[in-house]
Design a protein around this nucleic acid. Structure first.
Lengths: 110, 110
DNA sequence: CTATCATGCCTTGGCATCCTAGGTAACATT
DNA sequence: AATGTTACCTAGGATGCCAAGGCATGATAG
């Protein structure tokens, strides 16, 4: 199994969640799976990280939620990206780009 | 001046400090300047972040410190990267690379 | 000569965020 | 009948960053 333990940096989780939900409404458990799949199995979000983050993100109006049934007929809470959430995703992606660029510069420094 | 407020992500500061010190012994105030310069003025480390971080990093044996005089004859505490610190820098750079790659994959996902 | 700015050190307190470690429940599979 | 998977949630602790201060020295400006 040899799972690489890759703790997320604080601040990246929101972006990942918003990105996952931007591909279509999804429930919490599915978000974890989608992030794992999108990242090529590199990122493993813990439930204890996800659910508080979802609550926070919904409070901020970046997603809305609705109880519904999944394809197997089980109850699940589906999250949908709001317009504000879409904007926020862009903000966070831009912010990440800036940081990644800055770090890259530092890495090159001699 | 229009300084872009670019809060660091938690976890990146140690790497930046170790990298700055890897270019030669330096005192705290100088580390802030060197990081700013290396990053092309994009990263501004706060003193209230730096000094606790330096303390932490020294406790972990990644840098050693010595009071000395700078080129203008003023007392300053110079930090030097230890061998353990050099290893740690490599670890953190590798960790950053993995995360950056994973995030890039997520970004590409459709 | 005195006020202010830059250099240089530090601490306290708060806040945000993530993880560990649990708990609950329904359904599927063995 | 037991275990595993899906699915939700919470409490508590730890980490780590920042805001906002304080102190001291030396240089520069007025």
């Amino acid at each position: 199994m040899a799972k690489e333990k890759a703790d997320l940096l604080q601040g990246t989780l929101d972006m990942l969640i918003l990105k996952a939900v931007s591909l279509g409404p999804l429930h919490g458990y599915g978000i974890i799976q989608r992030i794992r799949q999108m990242s090529g199995e590199m990122l493993e979000v813990e439930q204890g990280s996800l659910y508080p983050a979802l609550y926070r993100i919904e409070q901020r109006g970046w997603v809305s939620s609705k109880w519904d049934l999944n394809e197997t007929g089980r109850r699940a809470k589906f999250y949908t990206l709001t317009n504000a959430g879409k904007s926020q995703l862009e903000v966070e992606e831009a912010s990440w780009d800036r940081l990644a660029l800055a770090i890259a510069k530092v890495r090159q420094a001699t």
